[in-house]
Amino acid sequence: MRATFIILFLLSSIQFTFGQQLQLEISGSANFDNAMFTVKEAGLDFASVLENESSVLLTLFQSDDITKKNNPNSKWRIAIYKQDDWSDDLLLEVKRAGSGKNIGNNGKTNIHGGENYQVIRKTEGLFFEGMGEIRDIPLNLKLSGFSVTMGAGSHNSRIVFTVYEGW
């Protein structure tokens, strides 16, 4: 009988632990304006770096109301990678340009890491970590390594963000 209760307790605990449903939303645009790609004088290449102080905002929230109530300060971490066929010379970097705002209270957000530009690679890497629900975390993107030697044309990439539980 005691063993049965222990099993019940453990299973319930496991359910509460795994019952979190962290969701991540990205809003805004990360396009680098065509007008940024100018050559100052004949014989020169493009300026070597373009920064997009963009309106890209990241929001992290619990989609499950019960979990939100039971575990409002769950820890999480965000990892990123990119999908494209760019050459290795062309670098896309990202940084967290702010700390966002707590959802549901006006306190200081618990968020750390990702404040310096880091190269987004095709393999997943840690971006930053935090706790609880945070909205409107601003992100900046930086592009470098492009050149007139690449020729004219469009270049596209997809950055994939994944949120994991825990630090």
Binding site: I26, N31, F32, S154, H155, R158, I159, V160
Partner: peptide, 11 residues
Amino acid sequence: TGGELEVNFLI
């Protein structure tokens, strides 16, 4: 869960 962000530029 995750999210995706498209990045585009045109030379």
